[in-house]
Each structure stands twice: as C-alpha cells, then as structure tokens.
Design a protein around this nucleic acid. Sequence first.
DNA 1: CAGTATCCTCAATGATACTG
DNA 2: CAGTATCATTGAGGATACTG
Lengths: 118, 118
Amino acid sequence: MRASRERGDLYAPDCPSRAVLDHVTSRWGVLVLVSLLGGPHRFSELRRLIVGVSDKMLSQTLKLLQHDGFIARDAFLEMPLRVEYRLTSSGVQVAERLAVLTEWIEDSIGAIEGARPK
Amino acid sequence: MRASRERGDLYAPDCPSRAVLDHVTSRWGVLVLVSLLGGPHRFSELRRLIVGVSDKMLSQTLKLLQHDGFIARDAFLEMPLRVEYRLTSSGVQVAERLAVLTEWIEDSIGAIEGARPK
DNA sequence: CAGTATCCTCAATGATACTG
DNA sequence: CAGTATCATTGAGGATACTG
C-alpha cells in the first residue's frame, strides 16, 4: 500500500494542488469547511449560517468539496427528507488549518487597515 | 491606546473581515503572501515565481494587500529602477497561517481524491 | 525594470422558477 | 426539505500595447 509519494507544487499552474487550493479557498468553500468543524449540518442550516450564499453556490461548493474528498454527504430517507454534510478525516485537516486563519482575521480585524471591499 | 476591541464576524456578509478573507484567499493573494515568507521580492521575481499570473493581476493583488496592510512596498531610486515587496508584521501572521494550509495541501495531494479542476 | 491603460471574453455568481 | 434548471449579469482575469 502506497499513497503517491509525489509532493505537489502550487507554483506549477497545472499541478492538481493548485485546483485543490482554489477549491478550499474559494469564496464559500472556506466558510463551509469551517462551519462543518462544529459538526454535521443540513443544507438549510448551512444556507442560513453562511449569510449571503445562494442555493446554487452552496450546492456547487458542497459538490466540489465532496469530490475532493473533504466532505461527505449522508442522506436519511425520512419524511421530510433529511441530508447531512460532514467533514471527512482529510476535511478536518484542511478545515482546522483554515479555522486558524479565519480566527486570526476575526480577532485582528480591528487592527487591519483597509478592510474595505471593492 | 486601544485597538478596536470589536471582533469580526465572517458570517456577516457586510463585516470587513469577509473582505479581508477574500483578499488573502484570492487566487493570487495566497501565493503572493506565501512567497514573501521567503523574504522580500521584486515585482519581476514574483511574476516569474508565481507561474501563470499576469502583470495586471499581480499588480492588483499587491495593491490590495498593501491596502490591507499585509504588504509593504520599498522603492529604491536606482538605475534601473528597483522595487521590493515584503510582508509587514501582520502580513507575516496571515502568511504563516496560509503556509500551514498550502504545505498541507502540497504534502497531501497524492491522497486527495478529485484533484481535477473544472 | 516596474508598472499602467485598454479592450475583450468567458466563467463565476446570483435571481428566479421548478422538481423529487 | 433538498436541491436542479435556466437565464442574465458582471466583474475577475487575461492579452496587448504603452509609459516613466
């Protein structure tokens, strides 16, 4: 059993690591991953928690991160339908690292100069 | 002397922390910040290092991060003109946190499922 | 070298409506 | 509830040419 020993190179545009970086640092990807550190969440919960995201973008982001293996989807055949999203083990790894960043930003925002968008 | 005691909230769409997060996690922002952890770099050096970035996007990214106070620009009036970009103290804080993420991705890319773009 | 100025294009994003 | 489908928008991003 061997996982690839090859290391990624973010500075090479064609390296898959660049795509993965883009996924996890995408506009909604960061917030989705960090949200799920608090435990599994339903679609509608994420929708409400991450203010501003649309159905479409949330769905798309979840699919992308599922495909990368960071998120798992559990569907319960109840009535009404219930679906939960949770972090996989590698998902926890990235999410924890992202959380260190987002928490620093939240804590330091008062000291940051031009926090203005646009 | 007091810096704002207010904490940011990334889940609020209008909170400045969201804009800052977008800046530092932007496509080229991550790579620029992490690159500068290795010391000051000239424009052309960054351009060559971060394969795929255009003059325009590099310039734009540098300006945005300067405005946020993460990067400083030093111009030396030599001939030919020399300009160096370096991390500020808060820039070092974010860059270090980003590097933890990027290094994990580079190391783990072999084990990540769908590292496919698009 | 270190950028800026223009033009252009496509893909990311969002609003709306609909489905299982 | 948990999405998908469609359409419209726009702005991020890139190519090219030019400047101090």
